[in-house]
Computed example of a mutant assay.
Amino acid sequence: MFFHPTTGEYLGGGRWLNWQRFFRVTHRHLMLPLTLGITIVSAFSIAILAILISSLYIYRRWWKGFLRKPRWRHRQTRWGDLHRLVGVWSLWFLIVIGITGSWYLAERWGAAAPSSDKGYAMTQSAMGEPVMPTQAAFNTMLQKTQAQFQALTIQEVRLPNKAGGVVAFQGQASAILVRSRANTVQFDPVSAETVFKQDGNDLTIHLRISEAADPLHFGVWGEVQGNTGKLASKILYFLFGIFLTGLCITGTYMYGLRVGRKVGSIPSKNTPRANTPFGIWRVALKKMGWVAWFFISAVVVCLGYGTYTYIPFRI
């Protein structure tokens, strides 16, 4: 259930499993068990970094390509120049996604930082089961949070969901590139006494690296500047996400053009002509062999399974 944070007006209801959740879990672990899925997805970050390094070697004097105007003589020149232009402007994005993705892989296999959430309830009743705070206790916690952590802009309030659970106020303060949980004030849900306080600036280097991964990977690092900055960084990541997707498409298309020269010059019953867009894609897929069909099948199975698990919740 959704309510306006200041007026308390009821804004409507929603389901936990929605389209946003569907795309998130598909992207994060392909709907597979977490360790297996995250390992598969994160392993491709190594491929991204390898592509980045090799592209700088293949594209000689790439630093001169930022302002190079694409040539429009014919389709191979046109798509090749556009591919290189978008590629050099996307180098920073490849670095960010590649490094953070590799960090997720390392975290899954032993490099995870220790939890920064160290608050526990102290009253006997709250230690035995999760206890919701009363309205008066909640108001007291809010006042104490504002007094004890004046720089904190509250973005999340987490209520107890297990025995010994606390009420945690989380958000952004002066520390940059940290998740909301890095800045927190936590309270016993019954007595409203402060049990834990943490400023993102006080985290260890290991924790700061861990906290920086999500804002950098998701593109929400602009949220420390308010809603406008948060939206701007998300739009930036959205655009460069489209650019990288476009590079995959144009790269495959150019591969089809290149290998299609010989195939198209000797047409036969089993070799499609490469003088049409459809023929170019057929040539590219044919030359890639089982690798192309394996990954296409994997994507179809993943989306199909995800849709299957999604539909019952919609009904």
Rank of each mutant, 00 (worst) to 15 (best):
F2T: 13
H4R: 14
P5M: 04
P5L: 06
G8E: 08
G12R: 03
G13H: 12
G14Q: 12
G14Y: 14
L17E: 07
W19V: 15
F22Y: 09
F22L: 08
F22R: 00
H29M: 07
L32M: 15
L32H: 08
L34H: 13
T35P: 03
V41Q: 11
S45H: 12
S45P: 13
A47C: 12
L49F: 12
I51V: 15
I53E: 05
Y59A: 14
R61T: 06
W62Y: 08
W63Y: 15
W63D: 02
W63C: 00
W63H: 09
F66T: 11
K69D: 02
K69Y: 02
P70F: 11
H74F: 14
R75P: 12
R75W: 12
R75I: 11
T77L: 15
D81N: 14
R84D: 08
R84Q: 10
L91C: 02
I99Q: 06
S102D: 13
Y104N: 01
Y104T: 01
A106L: 08
E107Q: 12
E107N: 11
R108L: 02
R108Y: 00
W109N: 13
A111H: 03
A112R: 14
K118V: 06
G119L: 01
T123Y: 07
T123R: 11
Q124Y: 08
P130I: 00
A136P: 01
M141W: 04
L142E: 13
L142P: 02
K144M: 02
T145F: 03
V157N: 07
P160M: 09
N161D: 15
N161L: 02
K162Q: 06
G165I: 02
V166H: 03
F169R: 06
F169S: 01
F169E: 01
G171P: 09
A173Q: 05
A173R: 06
S174N: 12
S174A: 04
A182L: 00
V185D: 01
F187Y: 14
F187I: 03
D188V: 10
D188L: 08
V190I: 14
V195H: 12
K197I: 14
D199P: 03
G200C: 03
D202N: 13
D202T: 04
I205H: 04
S210P: 00
S210G: 06
A212N: 02
L216F: 04
F218S: 04
G219Q: 00
W221M: 06
W221C: 03
G226W: 03
T228H: 05
G229E: 02
G229H: 05
L231V: 13
K234W: 00
I235K: 07
I235S: 04
L236T: 03
Y237R: 01
Y237K: 01
F238H: 09
F238G: 05
F240I: 10
L244W: 10
T245V: 08
Y253T: 09
M254D: 15
Y255P: 04
Y255S: 13
L257A: 14
R258Q: 12
V259F: 00
R261G: 01
V263I: 15
I266R: 15
S268M: 08
N270L: 10
T271K: 10
A274H: 06
G279Y: 13
W281E: 01
W281C: 04
M288G: 15
G289I: 07
A292D: 05
W293Y: 10
F294V: 02
V299I: 04
V300C: 07
L303I: 14
L303W: 09
T307G: 14
T307S: 09
P312H: 11
F313E: 08
